[in-house]
């Protein structure tokens, strides 16, 4: 008696389809957001009209990176037309008045005091993790890595936090050389990315 096998044989077409599905799944996994965004779902972001952008912590080699990025961010935030960013001189005066020692990373109490003194709805703090050129072999390109936090003025709670990284050595730089985009263009791109994340 001939024993029949019930095992199904895959055709070539089915194999190709399965391979394609696998490739798409892998590609989607690679493109997935690394989870660099936090948003407090209970917060009404529409109520934030005035913010104080604090001096950014600068972890890069460029001594002026924090001030440069802060200025670009502050102007871009205002140009969005939704939020008023307080002048840096006024923020510096308030920092001096309340005797804040570490303006880049204020405590909850300091945030409440500051927002009261400045009549600000929220405080934005940030860290410039990387700013300048990176090298890999013969290729070099400018890169920026930046993360921001939005702290509610009344409670001192972090209600939004995001980070971004732009520029660097891509496939084009590796293959053809070249210096990539200038640091200022990369900075603007990073800042626009963060503002998009804030308003989305």
């Amino acid at each position: 008696m001939e024993q029949r096998h019930n095992k199904k044989q895959f055709t070539l077409f089915e194999w190709v389809c399965a391979a394609l599905v696998g490739l798409i799944v892998m590609a989607c996994g690679g493109c997935a957001s690394p989870g660099d965004l936090f948003r407090d779902s209970t917060m009404d972001f529409g109520s934030i009209k005035t913010v104080a952008v604090m001096p950014f912590t600068n972890l890069s080699r460029d001594q002026l990176a924090g001030e440069r990025v802060r200025d670009v961010f502050s102007t871009a935030l205002m140009s969005s037309g939704s939020i008023y960013s307080l002048p840096t001189g006024e923020i510096a005066r308030a920092i001096g008045n309340i005797g804040l020692n570490n303006a880049t990373t204020p405590s909850v109490e300091d945030v409440v005091k500051l927002s009261k003194a400045l009549k600000a709805d929220a405080i934005i703090t940030g860290v410039v993790r990387e700013y300048g050129d990176v090298r890999a072999g013969n290729a070099a390109a400018d890169v920026i890595a930046l993360s921001l936090q939005l702290i509610e003025g009344q409670t001192g709670r972090v209600v939004w936090s995001a980070s971004t990284s732009q520029g660097g050595i891509g496939i084009t730089e590796k293959l053809f050389g070249g210096g990539g985009k200038p640091i200022n263009d990369v900075t603007e791109k990073a800042v626009n990315d963060l503002i998009t994340k804030l308003f989305e």
Partner: peptide, 10 residues
Amino acid sequence: IMTSGISNAN
């Protein structure tokens, strides 16, 4: 003296 920009008082 303006160390980091102009304030309201200035």
